[in-house]
Design a protein around this nucleic acid. Structure first.
Lengths: 165, 165
DNA sequence: TATTGTTATACTCTATAACTATA
DNA sequence: TATAGTTATAGAGTATAACAATA
């Protein structure tokens, strides 16, 4: 069953996938309960709240949040309906759409963030010992850079679309 | 924006989530291309192929694969249609259903596994240096055990259902 | 022609609740 | 009553392709 991975590698792979999955499940449940937000919606709002002047172009958002463009349009529509964001066309480039967080959007992020951070601390960081954080950060950061720079084996013409279908 | 997590902690959290997400995206795409299998379906088949005599009860499968029962019934229906598994009622307990991998199911797992393992090696293990694997394994294993033993803050009556809706 | 974003559409997946059958 | 599994249903989310508008 291992076919080229050692038992330890296989264990690390499964552990990584399970930790990521359980963590996402936990924070997603919290975000929905506290703010009626999916994880993706929270990511969009948090990115905007963190951006200069609280605004980003749709394309920049899609690149960061890892989405198809139509998927982002769908989510933006939901957030706009709730008046958590606004959309307006860019003065620089009439094709572009600028997404901005509203005060309500910022308030919602501020409201759910403490609990969100609690979840992450409790699940992810509490079981870590001294030195674990530095070690994990270094390796995961390296892996992330590697993944970002490694094109998929069947390189797509242009890497805008992600996620499964 | 950090609200209780240090910059390094926040970075580690984001890196973990992104690595898990990118890895799952990559292996999912491969499994679909090579075997028309979703990641979940592959997990079901792989678990069965790894089980004694290639069979498990539905409940045991649901516990491992992290699913609602109806979700597992749905996926099992798809796999049964493709004759990758069979279902039969248990002689021990007439309420239970025993799921078995077929030869075709085993063959499919064998066919997609090398590429799957390649993906994992290339994306996850190639960028690791000596000692990284041991360090990561130990910490992630500890976190996983911690997560499994930590009940959700709003403990559900019985922990059979997972994932978001 | 290429890029940005939207729309229409179809489909996959998931959860909830009601249900059957067995223990 | 509790457990195992299925079914019906309804909804969220996603991708694809066609489209309009701008560069």
């Amino acid at each position: 069953m291992t076919g080229g991975l050692s038992a330890e590698e296989l264990g690390a792979y499964f552990a990584l996938m399970e930790v990521g999955s359980l963590l996402q499940y936990a924070v997603d449940a919290h975000l929905r309960a506290e703010g009626d937000l999916s994880y993706v919606q929270f990511q969009i709002l948090a990115r905007l709240a963190d951006a200069p002047e609280g605004r980003l172009r749709m394309t920049d958002l899609a690149d960061g949040v890892v989405y198809s463009r139509s998927g982002l349009t769908y989510q933006a529509g939901l957030l706009e309906k709730r008046e958590l964001i606004t959309r307006s066309s860019s003065p620089d480039d009439e094709r572009s759409v600028i997404v901005s967080v509203t005060d309500g959007g910022r308030a919602l992020v501020a409201r759910v963030l403490p609990g969100h951070v609690d979840d992450v601390r409790r699940l992810l960081f509490d079981p870590m010992a001294d030195g674990d954080l530095a070690a994990i950060s270094e390796v995961l950061g390296r892996i992330r850079r590697h993944m970002r720079s490694t094109p998929p084996r069947s390189a797509k013409p242009r890497a805008k679309n992600r996620r499964k279908g």
